[in-house]
Design a protein around this nucleic acid. Structure first.
Lengths: 188, 188
DNA sequence: CACTCGTGGCTAACTCAACTAGCTTTGCGG
DNA sequence: CCGCAAAGCTAGTTGAGTTAGCCACGAGTG
């Protein structure tokens, strides 16, 4: 039997792909083992179990998302940066719906997950600092922006929007509105 | 053996309570049967299985939420109505975190679920019509508002907000900002 | 070049949840 | 009082996750 050459990273990556392609409900150790061409118990040499796997997928996804947001913000500022970050956020969620959904379903109480969430939120913070916000106003504005982005992509990918208006246009309008709101946010 | 007097409604209600109290991950037929003092297979006389149960819980929760929103909006208009509806939305999600989470995890493709979602969104629509919006602007504004509310309560109940600022204050600020944004929404 | 030993794979076996089949009994309507 | 639909049950199957413990690959060393 030739070795399959698995590592935790390989397993987590495959799990992310599986979640994206077949939905987060289909992310099982059984399906994952089959995709990797390996017997199910072999996975335990690389991960601690299903819960551990989901946590790792969530952490990896948040780090990827954070990197995409950082890249989008690079070299921009103000409403320009905001629009780029928002678009990158939505693009990531649409390109990786399974990974994104896993981040939502994993409890935030875990140390590694909370840290990853904080890292992913950093670029958002940075953009809003660029709007001249600080202190409580910065926290409130960041929460508002994160809530709007998170809620929008969840509703969109979950089919929560009825109506037949293209969601992309609604998203652009929302981002424009947020941009105006943040520019006029009551500072301090 | 005396009959337990179950009906689909009783079962769904108990499932909702179970989800609220022990988390959506603990919503299993096994746990539900135990709570109801009945053997597991007996549940199949009232529901079609776990998926069906989750769908019913989601529909019931959306209807309760919709009723709460309608009540909150009654007799108010403009930003007053918006604030009341937003508060009612968040109160519901905090009081019934399990039920709320189930609505999120159930696929929106199902007929009954989509219809319930539309019913729950109606009061939000009504409030925004009161802001003088219509057509695409109304759709965009409703999506924005729903996204913000949905995202906020999910992040809040999921522990997604770090920082130690009270989330209620951030919520109030967000709603105030949304109110201003909607009043100035580019009509048509 | 042989040996060895850590590691990554395996099979076997267990638990527990969901579901199905089919039996029993309750208790309401005639 | 009786019959029968419905509501409960026990028993048994399937399939996922998990644990235990065995074995073979292959890298590093003498």
């Amino acid at each position: 039997m030739p070795r399959a050459g698995l590592t935790p990273d390989v397993v987590v990556e495959a799990a992310g792909r599986l979640a994206d392609e077949r939905g987060t409900g289909a992310l099982s150790l059984a399906a994952l083992a089959q995709v990797l061409g390996v017997a199910l118990p072999s996975l335990y040499k690389h991960i601690g179990g299903l819960d551990d796997l989901r946590r790792r997928v969530a952490v990896a996804a948040m780090d990827e998302l954070g990197a995409a947001l950082r890249d989008a913000a690079a070299g921009r500022s103000g409403s320009d940066a905001l629009a780029a970050v928002a678009a990158a956020y939505r693009d990531f969620a649409i390109a990786h719906p399974g990974r994104y959904a896993v981040t939502q379903s994993v409890a935030g109480a875990e140390e590694s997950v909370a840290a990853a969430a904080a890292r992913a939120a950093e670029p958002v913070y940075a953009v809003l600092r660029g709007f001249g916000l600080s202190g409580d106003a910065l926290i409130d504005a960041t929460r508002t922006l994160r809530a709007a982005l998170h809620g929008f992509v969840l509703l969109e990918t979950g089919g929560g929007f009825g109506m037949d208006r293209p969601t992309g246009e609604s998203f652009d309008r929302m981002v424009a509105a947020l941009s105006a709101t943040l520019a006029a946010w009551p500072a301090r």
